[in-house]
Design a protein around this nucleic acid. Structure first.
Lengths: 247, 247
DNA sequence: ACATAACAAAATGTATACATCGTCGATAGC
DNA sequence: GCTATCGACGATGTATACATTTTGTTATGT
């Protein structure tokens, strides 16, 4: 599945990375607040060294920012930045889809992608009401991971995976049991139709169509974001990925 | 111009980053070879700590890779990876151009971009033979930096700048006095025409056209890459950015 | 009461010491 | 002569100690 990065993380380094991620996304530290290295080190029970490494990495990923005077702080995202990050994911996934179509995807991987779509179809269609969120999220993530690697270009795959590290830009950002509203549920049906169309376009070597579809697919997440901001701001607290959005 | 990153680098950290970059790009260590932390530390006269930080960052940038057993090595790039990185730059710059056109670029920044194009015109047209490479490189870099920030999306700007950190993906990769061949020189004329067209498209709010043009503009670099690989491999050694390409 | 300057506390940046793991080589056995 | 295992060397991963900068507070002067 997603061998994500060539990460051969050492135990402490891994603890630091996951720990800080949880701290930030769990709302333990408010956006904009300083991330004190000693405080984190004590809280996680490890030394400052892996903490610093993790912070530097998270800065590269865009989750934390460097303070002008040194040190790091939890990054705050404006609504437009979230929107742009989603658009960016669409652009990159679109490129992955286009290249896969133009260059021809490896038959086995394309078959795997089609199998995932079939399973997704089952998950969505069988019991539209009693949908298994966990299962859908898992399959959806698998679809996007497979798509990212379908072009055979490691360069593209890396960048797609990179942008997905931003929590709200992930394809599963708005898929959460805590945020189970009809509007989101409807988007799953549309999304699944787009999944099918993307695979079809790649199979037919229709690069431009595949790219446009993947972009539009990402914009489904943007629509969900707008729904949260305009229609039901109470979801802001219930969608974990949106904890960092201020404005 | 390009305040690149919110990097408030400490002296040792900066020395480490620049030093290792020079080591890798200068060919002091062969691609694939291990980058021993102690060796680098002794060579640069600083401790291992900033070295490690710089290596971790360069791994994120894609210049070095993590060895399965730990530590880092100089990354080797296949021809297709170089080609894909250039394509990726085109995709991202294309997105920057499209968004600038769709959303409307700030008048002052657009004016600045037009001024750069004017200056570039002078540099190219006045003395086609006695072209000042340094000046052209500087203006060309300014054009691409300005374009990256023209959409107003910091997210997009960041990503464009990121991919440009890969030496061979930079817009100036094939602009070098050491590699002054007629084929490259001709590409400058075509490139300058594309610069003009990109600005025009953004000004006319023609987003799709702007995106397509920016992509095609990047493919000029891809053509130069193919020229090196197919027509004149002696350039492989003369174009500094291509030192990491094996195959 | 307010502003300013000096001082103290704390945080980061850097260096070094220690622990752990991988790799290379030598030696012993077959 | 070849292979396998044991051991030493070296490298990275981690922790800690030190130095420098930043920040917050307090006291003093106007």
């Amino acid at each position: 599945m997603g061998a994500a990065h060539p990460l051969r993380q050492q135990p402490q380094a891994l603890k630091a990375l996951m720990g800080i991620r949880d701290l930030v996304l769990g709302g333990a530290v408010t956006p904009g607040a300083r991330l004190s290295e000693v405080a984190i080190a004590e809280r996680l029970g490890i030394s400052r060294t892996p903490i610093r490494a993790a912070l530097a990495r998270l800065e590269q990923e865009g989750l934390v920012e460097i303070l002008p005077s040194g040190g790091y702080a939890v990054r705050r995202f404006s609504r437009s930045e979230v929107s742009d990050a989603i658009e960016l994911r669409g652009v990159l996934e679109g490129t992955a889809a286009r290249l896969a179509a133009e260059r021809g995807a490896p038959p086995d991987r394309l078959a795997a992608l089609k199998a995932i779509v079939e399973e997704l179809d089952g998950a969505v269609a069988d019991w539209p009401e009693a949908l298994d969120f966990d299962r859908y999220v898992e399959l959806n993530a698998a679809f996007h991971d497979t798509l990212a690697g379908l072009s055979g270009s490691e360069t593209i795959r890396r960048e797609v995976e990179r942008v997905k590290n931003l929590p709200f830009a992930s394809p599963s950002a708005f898929l959460d049991k805590q945020a189970d509203v009809p509007a989101f549920r409807r988007s799953l049906v549309t999304g699944q139709a787009q999944h099918r169309a993307i695979v079809e376009a790649i199979e037919m070597r229709e690069g431009t169509r595949a790219e446009a579809l993947a972009r539009e697919h990402a914009r489904l997440a943007r629509a969900n974001l707008e729904y949260v901001m305009e229609e039901d701001r109470s979801l802001l607290a219930r969608v974990p990925a949106l904890a960092l959005v201020n404005e």
